[in-house]
């Protein structure tokens, strides 16, 4: 696997407290590999260390320990910066510049000039849905529009790796759908997308791989199917040709949902083998329609990972 991002024991302590400064560990020995072409979801509850990781990758903060590389080179390298894009969480830009001017300036930093620069800016603003308002000062923009401008600036240099910190934040349902499409388009173009989110539906819809970060520590990393596939928490048995009194007699009514005429879905816990219930039912004349394992959703998995984590105070030392 060619690596787009690699972090090794990446650790960040912040000093907290007014008079007596104490270190607060925001990120604890994060070791992570992200392959090129992945849409990688960096998940965790608020305060998990997602933004800290992204800031370390952008060298907006410096690590206390450990190292990080993007495209095989140390972070902060100007040549690396040419090949990446970054959307910060809750982006903010200059009040008195227009979207066109802002993007034009950023394009200039990557060496775009004249007509090529104007074309690049125009295409990107079209792509994120900013119309004639592109000539208005940014202070007149809504939060959602600023987020779109933020996305456009992250893509101004046609980046190989795109870092998006909570890209759906501040967007209405339509905007969220457009961003999802945009991320999928980036994936189809072979780009690596590394995005942080606490909205699991986004990750489920988009990611090939995810990492779950809790309390500054990496809890798990892997493909979405790997993470959820091994957590079968029960069985769903769909049968037809059976009547309610039979189900009642067998003590199954509490776990049964009627889905049609003499057709029922029965949920069985993982420790209750479905073959025994099935053979009992077939004796009464019931027919098996389907038998499926009930797997964890990412949300179930996430909640299980997050519960029982140390409260933030316990991460302050001294």
């Amino acid at each position: 696997m060619t690596l787009a991002i690699r972090t090794t024991d990446l650790t960040k302590d912040y000093a907290v407290g007014f008079w007596r400064k104490r270190p607060y560990r925001a990120l604890d020995q994060l070791s992570l590999d992200v392959g090129t072409g992945d849409v990688f979801g960096f998940l965790g509850p608020n305060g998990a260390g997602k933004t800290t990781t992204l800031k370390l990758l952008m060298q907006l903060t410096f690590p206390t320990r450990g190292r990080a590389e993007i495209l095989g080179r140390p972070v902060g390298d100007v040549d690396v910066k040419r090949r990446i894009g970054y959307l910060p969480e809750h982006p903010y830009f200059y009040d008195y510049l227009t979207a066109e001017e802002l993007l034009g300036g950023f394009a200039g930093m990557f060496g775009y000039r004249g007509a090529e620069r104007a074309r690049r800016v125009g295409t990107l603003l079209d792509e994120v849905g900013i119309g004639p308002e592109r000539r208005l000062a940014l202070r007149k923009f809504s939060k959602g529009m600023i987020q779109r401008v933020g996305l456009a600036q992250a893509l101004i240099n046609d980046p190989e790796v795109v870092f998006l910190d909570e890209p759906m934040s501040g967007l209405d349902p339509l905007g969220r759908r457009e961003v999802r499409r945009l991320i999928l388009r980036l994936r189809d173009q072979g780009r690596t997308v590394f995005f942080s989110s606490h909205i699991l539906a986004d990750a489920e819809a988009l990611c090939s791989r995810v990492a779950i970060l809790v309390g500054g520590r990496l809890r798990t990393v892997g493909s979405l199917s790997d993470i959820t596939a091994f957590h079968v928490r029960g069985w769903e048995l769909v049968v037809s040709g059976v009547e309610e009194p039979v189900l009642m007699r067998m003590g199954l009514m509490q776990r049964t949902t009627r889905i049609g005429e003499e057709r029922y879905a029965i949920e069985l816990p993982i420790d209750e083998p479905p073959d025994k219930v099935l053979s009992d039912l077939t004796v009464t004349g019931a027919r098996l329609v389907s038998l499926n394992p009930i797997r964890d959703t990412l949300e179930d998995f996430f909640v299980r990972q997050v519960s029982g984590v140390d409260p933030p105070e316990s991460r302050v030392k001294g």
């Binding site: 952008m58 970054y86 959307l87 910060p88 903010y92 930093m109 933020g150």
Partner: peptide, 14 residues
């Protein structure tokens, strides 16, 4: 304060 610096410093600028 406004975090506008984040997007700028991620660009090829020292």
């Amino acid at each position: 304060e406004r975090r506008s610096i984040y997007s700028i410093l991620a660009k090829p600028i020292r």
